[in-house]
Design a protein around this nucleic acid. Sequence first.
DNA 1: TTTCTTTCTTGACATAGATCAATGGCCACG
DNA 2: CGTGGCCATTGATCTATGTCAAGAAAGAAA
Lengths: 192, 192
Amino acid sequence: MYEVLRTFYEKRFPLSDEQFEFIRKLNIPKTLKKGEFLIREGEVLKWGAFVTRGCLRKYIIDAKGKEHILQFLPETWWISDIDSQRYGTPCSFFVDAIEDTDILISDMAANQQIMDHIPGFAEAFTKGLQKHAAEKDKRIAASLSASAEEKYLDFLRTYPSIAQRVPQHMLASYLGVTPETLSRVRKRQTKR
Amino acid sequence: MYEVLRTFYEKRFPLSDEQFEFIRKLNIPKTLKKGEFLIREGEVLKWGAFVTRGCLRKYIIDAKGKEHILQFLPETWWISDIDSQRYGTPCSFFVDAIEDTDILISDMAANQQIMDHIPGFAEAFTKGLQKHAAEKDKRIAASLSASAEEKYLDFLRTYPSIAQRVPQHMLASYLGVTPETLSRVRKRQTKR
DNA sequence: TTTCTTTCTTGACATAGATCAATGGCCACG
DNA sequence: CGTGGCCATTGATCTATGTCAAGAAAGAAA
């Protein structure tokens, strides 16, 4: 499973065998069965996880007890809560596996070491964070004004591979519509 | 206007006259007339701004040309785009003044100096960032499922002072409803 | 003050999407 | 293999909110 990590990095910056070996040692593999939790609300995170196989979902439960999926995390995605790590504040969301999933876990200290030793890593890492923040702004805007159909098509465009593998009712939760509505949107869509 | 900044900091960590003087020198005051822009989409940010008087708004314009207010920033709020600063990526939003507004501007280098010299600053700063990130997640969830009334009441609870000072049509834009709907929600509300 | 413009309110109507309910498909598991 | 339980689909309503239009109120300008 380290190969996935390596390929991912090599797309972003050059990496010698030796350097990768350095990174490899700092990442601990773990496997989650479908349905297993990785993070529960209220826990304090001391690490981050990189997905090498399978798919996770991040969600919160609102005041009415309703679940809202904030993010899907298939291979090569990264989950953590930087602030929970740095300041020990409990995190506000759940993460569980929607398929059997392999991850690589590394803590803050490890990350710091990698940043110090591998040129390009820090930049690539923060580029990822930045992209994610901008996506969040876009998502807020879309959820405020886009129709169910627009949100669905936009999701297809942005994450075509995710759309195919997650169960429909979860996609509905992500989009903020009922499963029935999503079903109808898709029906209309195939007619064209 | 530096007094606002000082009071703000002193709520978060102890600060001697000397220390504050150090900070003061690194913050450059600026005044914006109502309607004036602080940041335009596509610009590269090299600084952050702290509001000492007045109110700013941050918004984006979507593919259909519609405006979406992402955030209001009254006194003691902070605006920047960390990633734009660090990596020179253009930012994706606009910021303008909805009242005559005084701000204090400091660039990355200044911030770094302050972090290095003032114990407690770095922590307070990042705590702010973290709170903001969690708010964003909550906002996504709310915009996906809450009714106009719930979103409005929630805004009142969370930002009571902002609700009173921003024009209603802007609040409507923030909440993702039409001005008409907001007007009706408020009418129903006052009846109770 | 008077006038002009922008914002807010109110009503009538249209519609997207929620809700409720029933059906059929599809796995997983005995 | 059945069979029980989840999931997707479809139809029939219901409702919140958008849209369009007109008038009132409130600021800004002069």
